[in-house]
Write a protein that binds this DNA or RNA. Structure first.
Lengths: 226, 226
DNA sequence: GTTACGTTCAAGTGTTTCATTGAACGTGGC
DNA sequence: GCCACGTTCAATGAAACACTTGAACGTAAC
């Protein structure tokens, strides 16, 4: 009996890694973690899974080096391990988008027609950050607190109204959210456009911005700022 | 029965795709197919699987759009469907290499040419430019004309064949292209490796090389040179 | 100490995936 | 038409996976 060839072993290891990505819940966890680290409880709440189940999926990800855990007091904070993970997720997204008619259908049904307006590129936005562009962050408060674009205003779903008084009509507005498949910034843009503002969407989302080495700011949101 | 959210549907679809990659045999098939199309029989022979099993795995890949089939007479020739597939494989490799100590162990234990799997650094290449290293530029002609590595040969996609006669088998070859997210040089390396050449990839691509202040040459390509 | 809480582990159950076998299908040569 | 060949399909049993439950562990507060 010959020992299995190193070639086979490598393919096996790669297959294990792929299988670690091969579960919707784990992908959702990774997607959440790409926003910033979270503890098990919060992840369970956000995904609607039981805590035990969440923990087990996190273990599976950890076994494969996809997430890191940092312990602080009674909490275990999970986060993406490294940039390869985010890159692989993006590759998987692109792959699925390209090869799956079903996915294209979903995208065109829910997202595509919402974005007739061309997104702002990261380069463009960064270059104009000093020129008085108003940047809106459409994610929930806690994700905002973990990191956001410099000067961005936190405008989670449903809070647009409180913002309207202070939002200048004569400045360009750029909104962003979690990423390509997050609908929050689409909604925000649609809402403000309907009210006559000059709003555009940032391409991709916050994780990609940070992974790109762009400037990031942290801290609690100040909802009154504009 | 509630309608599942589009977000969940997307994660499900992505997970399916990841699971399609989550089997050593399928990865081996994809790896073989990245070097050119093959029929079922030959793939079964190359992988040591039964024909029926090979066929079933190919069906699984085909369901997910990872491979295409072309029928010619009694033969069905399978091949990679598109560039996203290759890019995803590349990302999966990088991910596994980065996150799996086991994989690193296998590589260092069995692969004498461990560094053949790793890219050549800019420093290393520049130091060896005078020592008869053959440098291949995998970008389109017009980009080559605007600037390339000193002595580099222009080998755009699909032109490898014309090069084979003049390419020396006893010299180290280094290929590069546009950068990290360009797969031309990967393809070129894969193709030439399959033919038995000693080929490696330059880390990053030409823009990074130039931005780094390394020597650059300009002018039209001479496709005959070697 | 004891208690409360967040997290992890282990066992049980239903579902999915994998390889094998043997048969069926479709095309080209006779 | 008939056969040969390459490929695909369907059914089986074995293995791996997902989710639940309930218990165990470790830290912080009392």
């Amino acid at each position: 009996m010959e020992t299995t060839s190193p070639r086979k072993m490598i393919f096996s290891r790669m297959a294990e890694m792929a299988r670690a990505l091969g579960n919707p819940h784990r992908l959702e966890l990774l997607n959440l973690l790409s926003q910033g680290e979270r503890n098990v409880d919060r992840l369970a709440e956000l995904t609607g899974m039981s805590v035990a189940n969440t923990s087990q999926h996190l273990q599976a990800l950890r076994r494969n080096g996809l997430v890191d855990v940092r312990r602080a007091g009674k909490h275990a904070f999970y986060g993406l391990s490294n940039d390869q993970t985010l890159a692989a997720l993006q590759a998987l997204t692109a792959l699925t988008e390209a090869n799956s008619a079903a996915m294209q259908q979903i995208l065109s049904d829910y997202f595509w027609n919402l974005d007739a307006l061309e997104p702002v590129t990261r380069d463009e936005l960064e270059a104009r950050l000093g020129e008085g562009v108003v940047v809106l962050d459409a994610r929930p408060e806690d994700e905002y607190a973990l990191g956001h674009l410099p000067g961005a205003i936190c405008v989670p779903d449903g809070t647009v109204e409180t913002l309207l008084k202070t939002l200048p009509r004569d400045r360009t507005i750029v909104a962003y959210c979690r990423g390509s498949y997050c609908i929050s910034s689409f909604r925000l843009v649609a809402r403000l456009r309907a009210l006559g503002y000059d709003v555009r969407r940032l391409e991709e989302g916050f994780p990609e911005w940070r992974a790109n080495g762009r400037p990031v700011e942290e801290g609690r949101p100040d909802l009154r700022r504009a």
